[in-house]
Design a protein around this nucleic acid. Sequence first.
RNA 1: GCGGGUGUAGCUCAGUUGGUUAGAGCGCUAGAUUGUGGAUCUAGAGGUCGCCGGUUCAAGACCGGUCACUCGCCCCA
Length: 412
Amino acid sequence: MLQPVRGTHDLLPQECRQYRAIANSSRLIAQRYGYEEIETPIFEFSSVFLRMGEASDVVTKETYTFQDRGGQEITLRPEGTAGIMRAIISNGLTQKTPLKYYSCGPMFRYERPQKGRYRQFTQVGVELVGVAEPLGDVEVIALAEQFLKEIGLTKGISLEINTLGDQESRNLYRTALVTYLNDFRTQLSPESQIRLDLNPLRILDSKDVNDRKLLENCPVFRDYLNAESEDFFANVLKKLDLLGITYTLNYQIVRGLDYYCHTAFEFVSHQLGAQGTVLAGGRYDGLISQLGGPNLAGVGWAAGLDRLVLLAEKSIDKPCLISIIPVGDTAESQALQMAQDLRQEGLNIDLGYSGSLSKRMKKANSVGASWAVIFGDDEIKSQKVAIRDLKSGLQVEVAFDKISDYLQSKIQ
RNA sequence: GCGGGUGUAGCUCAGUUGGUUAGAGCGCUAGAUUGUGGAUCUAGAGGUCGCCGGUUCAAGACCGGUCACUCGCCCCA
């Protein structure tokens, strides 16, 4: 059996249509907020991703990394933000801010595949660079919400939001949390004991029942926010209220790396098992400077198309197709030119390759054509074709030079 | 990387305590119908039972390994 590489899959035409439809929606919605599309390479020097998080598991063991023939360390991008930030720096785009970018493309992670989680997957996302105000957070969240609405995902999806505060607040809290949990170190799950040293905030996200019990009385993040951070978050929430965007506060939403700050949010579905997060984002003010650029604020999100397609589930109709059905040698010799003429007029034309009238009609039906243009010797004599509506079965005669006009008027 | 479940036709699945030539529905191809598709009827094609090894007179079934899918863990910038 010839199998695709683990964690990759083929998008057959029907799936392709769904992916394309959702990607198009996201692009259009982003446009409405003034975001422009940007596309970066699907691989970068490994250092681009390494600089984003030395300790991160994703970088150390979940990337496709290899040496090219010139001995360069190359990594297939595991997410979109790093490459876009690199492009911003490489092209000197930091001169003029804010920058508002939309992007869509394949990402790669060497992980164990699950439903809605593949080794090659497609993400759409937006990045807003150079806006340090809460208005930026609100804008990208509003964009996300409108996008999900547009593709019909409202039921069973909720916006969960949290704040990570600024650097000072987070350090303060981290210390308090570690101090608290240290007393219970041996009672924690093995995973959380490791997290306690590497990435203590992640323990808040633990699924272990016993861990959850220990966390019930742990210090609360909001008590450690300084005035600025408190104010920032309150401002974000107030503006979301103003727009009528509903959310639930979820202190478990955590980001491990240091350049994350303030707002962190996820749109979560409860229909996808463990892979419930459908769209996730937040503020990453420290990232650009960490990559060697100027100190610019950033906020954005990314969404996996694969999961969105699983949830959207509505099948997209094929574009309207017209079959040309010649009968007899004379007609067959004219069909190619007729097909070509109608294609020039912008119509989608299917021209069969062989077969009797009956055969060709069957074929037209099975490829999903909406109309059949039938002509043989009789029609050539009278300079008219029979145009049959394959949905209703109604058939009319149309003069040769009116075929395009007739079909165009029917399709509108 | 770790643990559970599942692999039989293109798809969805039967297949008895191990026993002759592995079945069904849908789909596909051809015909009924040489100027009219869908519906119906008839016929046909399509299988290394995921792969490799083992047990047995005999394996689709039992055992081991492996690959893939799937559910969860880890992780998710």
